[in-house]
Amino acid sequence: MIDHTRDLASVRDATERLLSAVAKLDNASVAEPSRLPGWTRGHILAHLARNADALVNVWESRPMYVSGEARDTDIERDAPRPLDVQLADVRDTAARFLDTADAPADWSRTVELRNGVTDSASRVPFRRWAEIELHHVDLGIGYELEDMPEEFTEREIDFLADRFAGNASVPPTRLTDGTRAWHTGRRAEQPEVTVTGTAADLVGWLAGRREGAALAVTGGALPGLPPL
């Protein structure tokens, strides 16, 4: 069962970890390339701040973003800012998100996210947690997939396996870390591809952060996954 209160506490913790790590950088390193193609570390920090603003919009029943173009323009505008401005923006917008989430609300209601995606309001804190954890890794400053909390990694595998479940372009696939198992891909009565690896490697592959070279595959080739 989703526990939004617990997830909001995890968002707070993850945000503090990220801010503490980023505070050790300087202006030059913020302008350096991140692990995301075409984005500097400044792009990632700008995205995290604007994402917090966007989720406040979701809480308050406004469109998450005015448009995809406006979202991209805002990130490009804010990416070149110096470290102190980036830190203040991420900190302030994160606090605004958490303050808004602390207000009395119907957590069972359905909210609309980007591109017409809908979800339960109770799942929004986990979505924010995922943004922080994965983009902390994307910064390339020493925080790796293996450093993410075990609870988060397992739940993110659940989330992404469910996202690709029923997708006609993904063969029926069983994922396992040796103790736990997940299923994803299209539903069909045919042998499954089994993908085995550590939880970190599995979530890295599902989230598009690793190519899957460390994964063992039986029953076929490693499936290609649609972009997130």
Rank of each mutant, 00 (worst) to 15 (best):
T176N: 08
E192S: 00
T153P: 06
R127F: 05
R41T: 13
L145F: 02
E211A: 13
H47F: 11
L19F: 00
A207G: 07
D7H: 12
L228K: 06
Y143E: 07
H43C: 08
A101W: 02
L55E: 06
A168N: 06
V137D: 04
A23C: 05
V111G: 02
N57E: 11
V58E: 13
A9N: 10
L225Y: 09
E60P: 04
S34C: 09
D177R: 02
V170F: 10
V203N: 00
R6T: 12
L98G: 00
R123E: 10
T173N: 04
G140T: 03
R71W: 05
D3S: 12
R35Y: 05
R209C: 02
H135W: 12
V66P: 05
G116M: 01
D201N: 04
F97S: 05
L8N: 03
S120D: 14
P172L: 08
W107L: 05
S20G: 09
I132G: 09
P104A: 09
A31C: 06
P37S: 10
V137M: 06
A221Y: 06
D89C: 00
A46T: 02
P37R: 14
V11C: 12
A165Q: 08
W39G: 01
W129E: 10
W129F: 14
H47S: 14
G178Y: 01
R109N: 07
V193R: 03
S122C: 05
I44G: 11
L113F: 07
D89P: 01
L8G: 05
E69V: 08
T173G: 08
F152Y: 13
D74L: 12
T118H: 03
W59N: 08
R96F: 09
A46L: 00
R71V: 04
L87G: 04
I141G: 00
V111C: 07
A200E: 10
R186L: 10
G212S: 10
V195W: 15
I75K: 08
F97T: 05
P191G: 02
E76K: 11
E69W: 00
